[in-house]
Design a protein around this nucleic acid. Structure first.
Lengths: 274, 274
DNA sequence: AGCGGTACTGTGGTCAGACCACAGAGAGGC
DNA sequence: GCCTCTCTGTGGTCTGACCACAGTACCGCT
């Protein structure tokens, strides 16, 4: 009509935004096997010229891929530089859930309920398995016996313990979800510390409950393991009355965005060696 | 030494990348309530100058937020333009799981097992609830009775039905995860069609199973609902032998990246009206 | 005075070019 | 032969520019 020049049609070949076309391109290559874990993405400049978009658009797509835990970027030169397909979902899942909780897309209550469902299934699954690998979980429990730990350190090990159970089940989807669910309510868990009168008693109770859970798993008693996990999780949240509460003090969380996810994995390993 | 100029230290105030600092800034504002759903993010240029970064870095962070389902961007002017906090997790969860499956970060077997766990818990939860809202689920089943449907349409309604059960539980976390899990294996489900001899018979069996699940829920029989869901889901995957199989034909999926997530929600609504 | 259209303005979307930091690779000197 | 030094390719960032778009405000006409 009057707005456009009406002479040159810019040929809208697809209704995708430029960066989305890059994302679709990469996803298609992942699906047909052109790209596999360990492979390098083409250099940004090459990708840009190949797809006929600007480098900034490529970078936006790369950024999304990085945030989704699909690639790892590294500056410099050599085999380790560039964007490499890694597919480490944990950090991405954590970031997604954490941001959604922050933006009130998810309620803490629902997060806890979901965690309950997943973890109960996990321990039952592990208990039923023939030869579960509980070494990591046991090491974490041993580490938690130290009386030197601050409540924050204790809770970090606690979180790692629960994730290690999921890892023992061998289900990476559940493991990633568990890690994400836990980290998304990290701030609320920490805030719950404030309302605990006798921390040492609480910690001791948690230690015993953990041992009880692991014991039931090792004994192959899935039902008991389920029940103990259920009461363990609901116990803490009932005690601290977190569910359906106001947000925690903002300063305690949101320190790092950490979308690559390697941080969380490294944390789990590191805490295990304490 | 020899590499750097060793005279000017560029003052590494934080080890975050520029776009990560933007992300952290937004997340902090989400947590302390400065930003809430419905609010507008500051304009990109303003955000850039306020945080002392380039606009491209702001855009990368915005892109991640959009991919995570936190914001919706709109060109133009007026109250609907700009970046608005929306917190719609479903599309983001779907994209994340789908990409991870594509990049072999998640095994299809684990996705199915996770779906099994979540959905069994969901139906038990809904069955135990006092007055479940199953209207949407029933409408979907009615729609699936139509003999006109192509297998693809049938499966789309099927997926919507399962998600609607999660929605009936009121747990948005599980709902988003269910939607994501399903969409991540969409290609494999479609590929399973190829090995089904008598599709009409299969469809009829699925219809009966769906009615059976919904009936058990309506009757408040959580245990039966659980068992029926379990056999329903394992049935299809056993029949099509999808689990632990090779990737599906690449062309059937990966059409759109669709990180905003509104597409999936719209799809659910749209299919319900068929 | 009322109405319609037009120009303006602010927003995201995209591109191009430039520069830096970085890390490996290879050439050069000892 | 070993060490050092430059060279090259990569991601990271910034700047500036332009476009498309959708309200908003203004202006002219009736």
């Amino acid at each position: 009509m009057s707005s456009t020049d009406a002479a040159t049609i810019p040929a809208p070949v697809d209704d995708l935004r430029a960066w989305q076309s890059v994302l679709a391109h990469v996803e298609a290559q992942l699906l047909d096997g052109t790209l596999s874990p360990g492979d390098h993405l083409p250099p940004e400049r090459t990708l840009a010229s190949d797809l006929g978009v600007g480098r900034s658009s490529v970078r936006e797509a790369v950024r999304v891929l990085e945030a989704m835990g699909l690639i790892r970027t590294q500056t410099g030169s050599g085999p380790n530089a560039g964007a490499i397909i890694v597919a480490t979902p944990q950090g991405a899942m954590s970031a997604l859930l954490r941001l959604q909780v922050a933006a009130q897309g998810f309620r803490v209550r629902d997060v806890v309920k979901t965690r309950l469902v997943l973890e109960a299934a996990v321990v039952a699954d592990v208990a039923d398995s023939a030869s579960p690998d509980l070494e990591q979980s046991e090491r974490l429990l041993d580490a938690m016996d130290s009386p030197e730990l601050t409540p924050q350190e204790f809770l970090a090990l606690d979180a790692a313990f629960h994730v290690s159970l999921a890892a023992a089940s061998g289900n990476e989807v559940v493991t990633a979800m568990m890690a994400g669910l836990r980290s998304s309510i990290e701030g609320y868990v920490q805030a719950g510390l404030a309302v605990i009168d006798d921390w040492e008693a609480t910690a001791e109770r948690l230690r015993e409950e953990h041992r009880g859970i692991l014991g039931a798993i090792a004994a192959g008693d899935a039902l008991t393991a389920r029940a103990r996990v259920h009461s363990h999780i609901t116990g803490y949240y009932t005690q601290t009355a977190l569910v359906a509460e106001a947000p925690p003090t903002p300063e305690t969380t949101a320190v790092v965005a950490a979308p690559t996810g390697t941080g969380h994995i490294a944390l789990s390993r590191r805490t295990a060696e304490q």
